[in-house]
Simulated scan of single mutants.
Amino acid sequence: MPALPEIKCLQMTMLFLVTCVCCWILGVLIGHEAAKHAINIGIDQVEGILKLTAKKAPSPRQNPCGLAQQCPPQHHPFRLTSGGDLNVLPRLCFDNNSIFAMNSDKLGRGMNIAVLKVSTGDIDVKSYDMYEGDFSDPMVNFLKSLPNGSIIFIATHDDGATRLSPKARTVLGEMGSNEIANLKFRDNWVFVTGRGFNLAGHYEQIVHRGESQQSFGDWPNHAVSEGCLLYNSSKLHQTEH
């Protein structure tokens, strides 16, 4: 039987070991909670910084009519896009207003025309079928009747060439078009010109059927023209964008 002092020494040793183990476990638990608390504080701080940055960062500003650059003061942005297939109508944005979309009931197959009267700011929209019927002469008469101080936007939809007469091509050429003589079946074409004054830049594009990627089945890519118009009632001109 061990002596009393030895028993007490053994008990003290066991108590010491148990105490050490408990302290170690407690330290691990406290350290884990401290680390977890520190991580949570860090996450909260990062989230706060991100929220503050998001509030301060200005949102990207889209230019009117989706132009690549901002127009100078007093200029009027425009973007003219031809139609696509039978269901994709032409589009005209002017001063950030969707002119053709607001007059969709007036659009149709053939030549779609919007006329801006600078003196009043009024815009008139008309469409002339160039696939069936005889609408070349009415279109010519309309174009010839426009007063000086008019800006004319023309965009094809579906087909603008089949019933387009030589006379109409001549009139459009006299208005400044360089491509109207080359317009063929289901080519896409857009043209912007002025009556009684010349635009500082030439705004016209033709996309031939079969010579570009056919984005709409039997129809080619859109033809597009865009820029910044500067004008007033006494001095009319246009600056390139």
Rank of each mutant, 00 (worst) to 15 (best):
P77K: 14
T170V: 13
G210D: 12
D85I: 07
F135H: 09
N96F: 01
L230M: 14
E179H: 12
A101C: 09
E174S: 15
T239M: 09
R195P: 01
Q45K: 13
S215D: 15
F78W: 00
C20W: 07
L26I: 10
W219P: 03
D44Q: 15
V28P: 02
K167R: 08
L17C: 06
C20V: 09
S233Q: 14
I43T: 08
H32F: 11
G176W: 11
D124E: 09
R186H: 10
V18I: 11
I206K: 06
M139Q: 02
V190Y: 02
I41E: 12
T162L: 03
C228N: 11
S233F: 07
L86A: 15
I154V: 05
Y128W: 07
N40C: 13
S127W: 00
K126Q: 11
S136A: 14
V192G: 00
L4H: 05
D85E: 09
G160P: 03
R209P: 05
G201Y: 09
L80D: 02
G108R: 11
L107I: 08
P2S: 10
I151C: 00
Q62Y: 03
E211I: 05
M175H: 05
D158Y: 08
M14S: 10
P147D: 15
Q238P: 02
Q62T: 11
R91T: 02
Q205A: 05
L15F: 13
E179Q: 13
G173S: 14
W189V: 03
G84R: 04
V190A: 01
T239N: 05
H208Q: 13
F16M: 14
D129A: 02
S177T: 06
E47W: 10
G194M: 05
K167D: 15
P147M: 07
T162W: 08
E6F: 01
R61I: 11
P147V: 04
L26M: 10
D124P: 00
P72K: 05
V190Q: 01
P58A: 12
E174L: 06
Q238W: 06
S233W: 04
G210S: 10
E240R: 10
H202R: 15
M130A: 00
L17N: 11
I30V: 07
P5I: 12
T170Q: 14
T53M: 13
G194Y: 00
S165K: 12
L86H: 13
G217D: 09
R91V: 00
S150W: 01
L50M: 14
F191I: 05
S98L: 07
I152P: 00
V171L: 15
G48Q: 08
G176N: 03
T162I: 02
K126A: 02
T239P: 00
M14Y: 12
A181F: 07
N97M: 04
G194N: 02
G227D: 06
H37L: 12
